[in-house]
Design a protein around this nucleic acid. Structure first.
Lengths: 144, 144
DNA sequence: AAACTTGTAATCAAAATAATTACATGATGA
DNA sequence: TCATCATGTAATTATTTTGATTACAAGTTT
């Protein structure tokens, strides 16, 4: 079980908009790099736009970043593409048997523990910016 | 998107084996408390057994803990029921376009970041034992 | 007006989960 | 020994989610 690749693709989109900032970054252009369908990209672009991360307009080709790279974190992307809801990284079975001590209380006991684990994961994402990501992508090329 | 409730059910099973340690904790008994099918429980019991967390034998009714409660962490359960693979909490889109700077390098750039986030989440799970969970379940009753 | 782009909905296939059914195998007691 | 009950396990099904695809409306530009 894995979290949707929408997250990774969202990062891909933003990084490519930046690195192609002298060109026109259309959904078709992005789709070729990601290797998917332009409609998939447009749907993600809509989410990134709604989250205030990019600027894109009907009829006008190309997307631009709406914020500085250094002020966009992976957490922003993660929330924008909506892969995991608050407190719902882990799912808890509903409808345990209320006549049982464990069934009656397991949810309330487990939930804060699961939430704490999720928050720890999200904290790491908050500490990485897209600037870090783009720098690293560019750096990989220099090795050759 | 949520991680399989197998994790929560696994914790439920272990907690109930402990709290019912004077009785016989059969798959049918567990299934009633969890409110699911005994076969689902048996499948999970098999995973917990394989991980060395419980003792259960063909033909013999009831499961017992194979280790002390205080030496079983949520992480042990998480690994036992196999909800998330190493480095695969987040999935990365494969087959980006190799002719593109971003497509060529995005995977290698993102992977360690995703892994770090996953490890932070797992670290929290390592720091909670089933003893903590069982104590909390029992404590909830005393409020009434 | 024609060509191109974004926005968005509908549909489809694939994968994962969990529920269910069925049955083989092992243990126990009448 | 045989009937009964438990676990082990495979097969099937329904549900959900993801991602791909198609289609088309609406906006922009030349």
């Amino acid at each position: 079980m894995s979290i949707s690749s929408r997250f990774a693709v969202g990062i891909h989109i933003l990084a490519l908009i930046e690195l192609n900032n002298e060109g026109v970054t259309s959904s078709e252009f992005l789709a070729k790099s990601v290797n998917t369908n332009p409609a998939v990209i447009r749907k993600l672009m809509g989410m990134l736009k709604k989250a205030g991360l990019i600027e894109v307009n009907p009829g006008i080709a190309g997307a631009k970043l709406a914020k500085k790279l250094s002020s966009i974190t992976l957490f922003d992307v993660y929330k924008a593409v909506n892969v995991v809801q608050d407190k719902e990284l882990f799912s808890i079975h509903e409808s345990s048997h209320p006549d049982c001590l464990v069934g009656r209380n397991i949810q309330n006991t487990i939930e804060p523990l699961f939430t704490a684990a999720q928050l720890a994961m999200e904290k790491v994402l908050r500490n990485v910016t897209l600037e870090d990501v783009v720098r690293d992508i560019a750096a990989k090329e220099n090795i050759c």
